[in-house]
Write a protein that binds this DNA or RNA. Structure first.
Lengths: 110, 110
DNA sequence: TATATTTGTAGCCAAATAGCTACATAATCA
DNA sequence: TGATTATGTAGCTATTTGGCTACAAATATA
């Protein structure tokens, strides 16, 4: 196992996912972000570091505060990987599944 | 840290992502999948287990062979989470970024 | 300037992860 | 039936991970 630091590994952790969701609403300081979690502040700080390394967020210092901002465009990398499968789950095979389960539903209702 | 077994953790590993991509093209036996990797077969077997637990793939035994099939619909879970950010990266803020970089490009070309 | 505030860093730890080899199990084939 | 094939399981290991406490550094405030 070698050290990985890619967006897929970054969003594997639920705390980091929650941080990204927080930052989707607004830019926040390190402290404000940490206040949303029971986890110790240095632990959150480490998460911010990981997210920064993946360029999923961006830090900008203002005085003694550091504001973190989401870089949603980087999430596109994940989105693009998912794209390979999108055509499959939107395909007629899935649609056939839907037809079958609709028929089932109608049978249940009858 | 507690044991997590969700699709986000599942796709964090590059080998597992490669397995999913393989299965996007066609259903394959455990052996055929393992043949695509330098990794030992039992290791791949463990990956299959993890993907199965997350319901990203489905196993069906046929004789002594086990065929694995992608369950693309489960990938929608990840897609839906990403959806929260999609509106951001498609927003006017990103478009503004594009306008600015286009202007920059034009300046460079001039 | 002394104190408080905001944040990161160092160093430690338990648990999880991905990997391996050896072995078990079950289904074909000769 | 005995050998071969396909696959999973057991058990071990090194590395990574997420978490914590204590400390350092830098900026603001009294």
């Amino acid at each position: 196992m070698k050290l990985r630091r890619d967006p897929f590994q970054a969003i594997a952790d639920p705390t980091r996912r929650a941080i990204l969701v927080l930052l989707a609403a607004q830019t926040m300081t390190a402290g404000a972000i940490a206040d949303n979690f029971a986890t110790a502040r240095p632990t959150i700080s480490k998460h911010m570091q990981i997210l920064s390394e993946c360029e999923l967020i961006e830090a900008s210092q203002q005085g003694r505060e550091i504001f973190y901002q989401l870089r949603a465009d980087k999430m596109k990398d994940i989105d693009q990987w998912l794209g390979q499968f999108r055509k499959i789950w939107e395909s007629r095979f899935d649609q056939l599944d839907n037809i079958l389960s609709n028929l089932q539903t109608k049978k249940d209702e009858a």
